[in-house]
Amino acid sequence: MSDAASPSSTVPPQATGITLVVTERVRLSKLDAYEAWARRLHALQATQPGFLGLHVLRDAGGPVAEYVTLVRFASPQALAAWRATPAYRSALAELDEFTADEVEYREAQGLEAWFDRPARLPAPPLWKNVIVGIVGVYPLIMLFAMLLRPFTGEWPAWAATLATASLSTLFLNWPVLPWLSRLLRPWLYPTRRG
């Protein structure tokens, strides 16, 4: 779902990974064909080394259906290797059949993929991102601190905190932030219609 880039498999993966954010506006008459195409593409991505997962947000409340797909890879090099595959290039050649206008691509690291939108919509202000982050992470920290206490009660404080923070971060990235971003979309992007 992007233009090809040259692969590099010699650089070790970065700890934060990378997310390719793809925004496609699909003609309503082509929805079924597009979704079949996307399922084939996602199945191919799942076999790619370094692929960590994907999440699709769909908004069909307008004259076109908007799909925002977040494709996560272990490193920029793994993403570049995927973009250079013949299977990916072949899939891209079919994309124009379904879309109503230009497809938008953006790479993001960390949690920014859930908040920053493509250039056609302004990103939410930082204070909104912070509030959503707190709303997502605070209950997770409390939950995992309580659940892990029987196992980590005798651990040094730094180790118990690390266990809690690790699980909280894992669940914050998925499924909590995707769910919160959908739930709070009207508040995060108040200028959006539909």
Rank of each mutant, 00 (worst) to 15 (best):
residue 32 D to L: 09
residue 87 A to N: 07
residue 28 L to P: 07
residue 17 G to C: 04
residue 4 A to F: 02
residue 116 D to C: 06
residue 57 L to S: 14
residue 18 I to D: 04
residue 1 M to R: 07
residue 84 A to K: 03
residue 27 R to S: 10
residue 27 R to C: 00
residue 163 A to M: 11
residue 150 P to I: 03
residue 15 A to S: 13
residue 128 K to V: 02
residue 156 P to M: 08
residue 23 T to H: 09
residue 30 K to R: 14
residue 193 R to S: 15
residue 83 R to A: 10
residue 20 L to N: 05
residue 98 F to R: 01
residue 179 W to Y: 11
residue 7 P to I: 06
residue 141 I to V: 15
residue 97 E to I: 09
residue 96 D to M: 09
residue 139 P to F: 07
residue 5 A to L: 11
residue 177 L to F: 11
residue 102 E to F: 06
residue 83 R to M: 04
residue 21 V to P: 00
residue 14 Q to M: 10
residue 82 W to I: 00
residue 160 A to T: 03
residue 113 A to W: 08
residue 72 R to S: 12
residue 125 P to R: 04
residue 103 V to S: 08
residue 186 P to Y: 02
residue 25 R to S: 14
residue 45 Q to T: 13
residue 50 G to Q: 06
residue 152 T to D: 00
residue 169 T to Q: 12
residue 114 W to Y: 11
residue 33 A to K: 09
residue 54 L to G: 11
residue 34 Y to M: 04
residue 12 P to R: 05
residue 194 G to Y: 05
residue 155 W to C: 01
residue 38 A to S: 13
residue 76 P to K: 05
residue 50 G to C: 08
residue 53 G to V: 10
residue 14 Q to L: 12
residue 47 T to K: 15
residue 69 T to E: 11
residue 97 E to G: 13
residue 142 M to Q: 14
residue 40 R to Q: 14
residue 149 R to M: 15
residue 24 E to I: 01
residue 86 P to E: 10
residue 142 M to A: 15
residue 146 M to L: 15
residue 143 L to D: 01
residue 45 Q to L: 14
residue 15 A to C: 00
residue 51 F to T: 01
residue 14 Q to V: 12
residue 69 T to V: 13
residue 177 L to S: 01
residue 105 Y to W: 13
residue 187 W to L: 07
residue 92 L to H: 03
residue 175 P to Y: 05
residue 154 E to P: 05
residue 76 P to W: 04
residue 155 W to P: 00
residue 63 P to D: 15
residue 12 P to E: 06
residue 60 A to L: 04
residue 80 A to H: 08
residue 64 V to R: 09
residue 132 V to K: 04
residue 120 R to E: 15
residue 59 D to C: 06
residue 122 P to M: 00
residue 37 W to S: 07
residue 175 P to H: 03
residue 30 K to F: 00
residue 187 W to S: 02
residue 114 W to C: 00
